[in-house]
């Protein structure tokens, strides 16, 4: 489960009633939840729809890189755990689509936007899973970063989103542990396994740090999201929290972080990392990651291959309804 801080929202706040807006903001400030039928500023609705849909898409696209390894998991225990985890991600996508639907956007529309390339999803999933260790690295780092992002969302001002996130966070608690345990078995395994683990860490470390979004200074609309209590911590704060939690975990594994500038600042008590390659981040977001096209194609293929099944289910439901109506009519006629 994965969110990426969203900063590219075009928020239009013109035309809303000032008094309604003030009352709305007072409720948000008072930590009350906003519910689907409540009045809300149009920009709040738009921001939420976009963020929740992106979040849902991330879950769904996120099934693909890990799904790669379900059939190749090296033990039955690992296989069951990975399958359950990827299935959970599908479930989380489903909860989130449903939360967005309460704001008046259908799942079909959202899926259409994903498949057409219009909608974004967390760019971490545009990196490939090359070895089994990547499954460990994703669980440990990507889920770890996601949890940092997601826990504050459990208190999001929008009720359905917050409730979905509570469920998601509860279910996710095993995901990161699963990944770290996997890394641990590799790090303590044969030299080849340890090499595999190190290689995975090398490839996933920086993209994981990018998951928190651009540095605060370049974050355009964070302010509004903060005021609306959709977002509660800044990108950099969450990123730092993640770094501080993760560096010692890497050391425990006996692995090296791929950052020559990494150092502990005794004064602040924080780990400091080197320069993040934001050019790479922008490129992957813009569609130029190693797997952007591949992932969307896979989703499109699944959707197209499933069209006849969905049509059949709908056709059957229609037929049955018609039959029932006909039977009822016949019965009424007989009674008359």
């Amino acid at each position: 489960m994965y969110t990426q801080a969203l900063n590219n929202l075009d928020i239009d706040t013109t035309g809303d009633d000032a008094a309604l807006e003030a009352r709305f903001q007072a409720r948000v400030d008072d930590e009350q939840r906003i519910e689907p039928n409540d009045w809300m500023p149009e920009a709040y609705r738009k921001t939420l729809v976009r963020q929740i849909a992106q979040h849902a898409h991330s879950e769904i696209v996120g099934m693909l890189p890990e799904g790669n390894w379900i059939t190749r998991a090296p033990s039955l225990r690992r296989k069951a755990a990975l399958l359950a985890k990827v299935q959970d991600e599908g479930g989380h996508g489903l909860y989130l689509y449903a939360a967005a639907e309460t704001l008046g956007k259908s799942r079909e529309e959202m899926v259409e936007e994903l498949l057409s390339g219009k909608a974004k999803y967390s760019s971490i999933f545009n990196y490939p899973t090359l070895t089994w260790a990547d499954i460990g690295a994703i669980g440990w780092l990507v889920d770890g970063a996601a949890i940092m992002n997601q826990i504050p969302l459990c208190r999001c001002s929008y009720g359905p989103y917050s409730r979905a996130m509570i469920r998601v966070c509860k279910e996710e608690s095993f995901h990161q542990r699963q990944g770290y345990e996997l890394m641990l078995s590799l790090a303590k395994g044969t030299p080849e396994q340890k090499e595999m683990a190190q290689d995975a860490l090398n490839r996933w470390w920086w993209p994981s740090l990018m998951m928190f979004g651009p540095p605060d200074g370049e974050s355009i609309h964070s302010g509004k999201s903060m005021a609306w209590k959709i977002k509660r911590f800044s990108n950099d704060d969450l990123r730092q929290k993640f770094i501080d939690a993760t560096v010692p975990q890497a050391h425990f594994l006996g692995l090296e972080l791929p950052d020559p500038d990494l150092k502990f600042n005794e004064e602040t008590g924080h780990w400091e990392v080197g320069e993040i390659d934001w050019e790479e981040f922008q490129q992957v977001v813009a569609g130029n990651g190693p797997c952007n096209r591949q992932r969307i194609k896979q989703r499109r293929t699944a959707h197209e291959n499933g069209a006849w099944v969905r049509e059949a289910a709908t056709a059957y439901a229609d037929k049955r309804r018609a039959r029932k109506a006909a039977a009822a009519a016949a019965e009424a006629k007989e009674a008359a």
């Binding site: 479930g91 489903l94 979905a164 469920r167």
Partner: peptide, 20 residues
Amino acid sequence: HVGSVHAADAEMALQAARDV
């Protein structure tokens, strides 16, 4: 109330609810 599912008819909705 725990959430929602999409399904074409009642039986499928019940199964989806159980599965999800």
